[in-house]
Design a protein around this nucleic acid. Structure first.
Lengths: 272, 272
DNA sequence: TTGCTCCTCACGTCACGTGAGGTGGC
DNA sequence: TTGCTCCTCACGTCACGTGAGGTGGC
């Protein structure tokens, strides 16, 4: 008979672990002294300890280990558990590899040392939105091209919504792929939630689908937003994703008086 | 101003998370109602929430995130943190890949469906041991070859220990690489801990070094141990390791009357 | 008046590590 | 008598999820 300390040394575990395994019924001492509570183990119990350690090393929880050791499940069930564990591990590996790539993308973004705080990029599924929008064409990207187009489009939508008695929600814009000459079709409109709004002459109600995006919150005036786009696109590429759709801008805070207080969310659909 | 529920929906997080971030000081509501305790957030706070989520996604703890956001560390320190995180992730990946291989080795061992309970293989560093041992040669492995050799060697060591007044500890054997004709040099002896023992005519005191091994506890008579070796060697290979030294046997329980009660540990040195 | 939201505790998670405070055997 | 081992609580870990029990605004 071995004391808990001797048995622990023999099995390369801590006495505390053995007490814990006793508590949860995973490995009971061969006997326990009535008066002192001292635990005694036999060398033969090393076998059971070994099985516990082996299964723990594979990542099983103590409860599952207890089930395996005590219920002596049939081979198929055992291999089923191992297969499940294998799948979990493989899944975890994929996730951690992706995470590692994202860390590396942030490192590279830091080197670029753009003013923007790069640690601001979140991956998520957008919530779908119903928008009343209208369409215009700009000669290209960039604030100097897009600004005037918005000036023209936004009042149209607002007027239409006022006519139909609907309250505009958040303002949203999205961009089609640029044509060969660089010109861009711009969609600008407002979220209308589930309010009933008829289509107008130029204004249409449409549904923006749920998509997986990389999203950045940008605080500041629209003139300076281009650097954010550059950083974001680079980050997406660095972290192993690629663009997979039309990007959107959500104007969470639109401050005409002080544009630097604006809060704009850029969403770029991506896929692996 | 947004209620906690609205802000949570906007940021794709749970209200509980926001309360938690408030508790730990990571993201305080813009204001809290004195009477009701209701929290209010502003849309501008989405930026901070975004940074929290981005860093959390990389695997940083909330405390570290708070430090990054509030202390605004210099670029080098930021990139140092990212580098550390990258190293941790890479390390974790290696470990999980190894674990995955071990799971797969167990699956293959199950298919073989040997009687032995394969979930009994533990990787560990052996503890170094001082042993008094002697040497013999057997015509090959297998109980029929080794048995008689042990019969001859063990009494020699015991007699020597008795002469020097030392108490024998656990019995240990190890094997040199077989020669071309298959013959094996066998070392057999006893652990003597730190007792002073002089070398004898045939008996030498030697130190077994600490090595990394795959270890199996085998309950039963020595005649049937060969299957365990076969399974163990196969498992080692399947799990991406290779043999890296001479294997040992530790006779934790040696029962002459009932050999099936014997407990023998097989240790095979391995490396990646 | 009935839902809905929000509030504050407080337990549970997983497998132990780490004291605190006390006792028994050499 | 002094170390050493062993014992039983009980807290802490990490980031919340999940009730319980209660309140305020539409």
């Amino acid at each position: 008979m071995l004391s808990i300390g001797d048995f622990a040394r023999l099995g390369h575990v801590s006495p505390r672990m053995l007490r814990h395994y006793d508590d949860v019924g995973l490995l009971r001492p061969e006997r326990v002294d009535n008066a002192t509570g001292y635990r005694s183990y036999t060398v033969a119990q090393l076998g059971r300890l070994h099985r516990v350690l082996a299964l723990r090393d594979l990542g099983f929880g103590l409860e599952q280990i207890g089930a395996v050791l005590d219920d002596d499940p049939p081979l198929e069930q055992l291999s089923g558990m191992l297969r499940l564990r294998r799948a979990e591990l493989a899944q975890g590996l994929v996730e951690d590899e992706d995470r590692l790539r994202r860390v590396e993308a942030h490192l590279r973004a830091l080197e670029g040392s753009t003013q923007m705080q790069t640690h601001n990029i979140v991956l998520k599924n957008t919530d779908p939105a119903r928008v009343a929008e209208t369409i215009g064409t700009a000669p290209g990207f960039g604030h100097q091209h897009l600004g005037p187009v918005f000036q023209r489009l936004v009042p149209k939508v607002l007027a239409h919504l006022e006519r139909t008695g609907a309250r505009p929600g958040i303002m949203i814009a999205w961009y089609e792929e640029p044509a060969d000459d660089g010109s861009v079709v711009v969609h600008a409109g407002f979220d209308i939630a589930n309010q009933a709004v008829d289509d107008g002459a130029d204004v249409h109600v449409t549904e923006l689908p749920e998509v997986f995006v990389a999203s950045v919150m940008y605080h500041g005036a629209m003139e300076d937003i281009e650097g954010v786009y550059v950083t974001l696109v680079q980050w997406i590429e660095d972290s192993g994703y690629h663009l997979a759709g039309r990007s959107r801008e959500l104007y969470h805070v639109w401050d005409d008086d002080d544009p630097t207080r604006s809060v704009t969310e850029i969403q770029m659909p991506i896929a692996k």
